[in-house]
């Protein structure tokens, strides 16, 4: 009851307190951190396959799942760095990132334990292509270091929370495994449709 009361008081206070408009935190530099943090999470193109990777990591079991918590954020950070030193193959990145829907979705459907090296490699490669495409949003005035920090934190939080939640649910009921695999088939199906659209509109 105390916690509820405290949360209610905090909410009421924050709502009642007038706050200055701070939409341009970028002027204070730290805004680029939030830019990196929110950029992938505010687009279905990235948020959905990131969640899918968390589901796949959960199906892989403890060791592989723990490696992914490290591999994916490292890959994302590396992808952003790549964008700063290499020319951006925009169309290729877009196509590859759409294919990830299908690849990760199908791996979830199969629900087979993958060799650790392959799974870590998959996480790093996926991270690089995702980080690289996200980094295309970096404008001239953006602080790349803060952007990298933001997007790396986002990737870490997304994969860790999704994996941990799914592992917890998998331990509670047998049907959760089926539900996760069904979700994988849906994600792969979504990917196939969007790849088709890309082929038509390219």
């Amino acid at each position: 009851m105390r916690i509820t009361g405290l949360a209610a008081s905090l909410t009421a206070t924050l709502i009642a307190t007038p706050s200055p408009a701070c939409a341009h935190l970028v002027n204070a530099r730290f805004g680029d951190f939030y830019g990196g943090l929110l950029h992938p999470l505010s687009a279905l193109d990235y948020a959905l396959p990131w969640l899918a990777l968390g589901l796949l990591a959960a199906l892989q079991g403890g060791r592989n799942g723990r490696w992914m918590v490290l591999a994916f954020p490292v890959g994302v950070a590396a992808g952003v760095v790549c964008s700063q030193v290499l020319p951006a193959p925009e169309k290729l990145l877009y196509g590859v990132n759409l294919l990830w829907f299908v690849v990760i979705g199908l791996l979830i459907v199969l629900a087979r334990r993958l060799p650790a090296e392959f799974f870590v490699g998959l996480g790093v490669t996926f991270g690089i292509s995702q980080g690289w495409e996200n980094a295309l949003a970096i404008a001239g005035a953006t602080n790349v270091g803060l952007f990298v920090a933001g997007i790396t934190v986002a990737s870490y939080l997304t994969v860790t929370l999704t994996t941990a939640t799914t592992v917890s649910l998998l331990r509670q009921a047998d049907w959760v495994r089926i539900a996760v695999r069904a979700a994988g088939s849906w994600i792969a199906a979504i990917g196939l449709l969007v790849v088709g659209v890309k082929l038509v509109t390219a």
Binding site: T4, L10, T11, L14, P20, A23, L25, G35, A137
Partner: peptide, 17 residues
């Protein structure tokens, strides 16, 4: 839920999407 509402109250930076 109250905490989520509280966190969502302060202004957030604009982003590109």
């Amino acid at each position: 839920m109250l905490l989520v509402l509280a966190v969502s109250c302060p202004g957030t930076p604009a982003f590109a999407h």
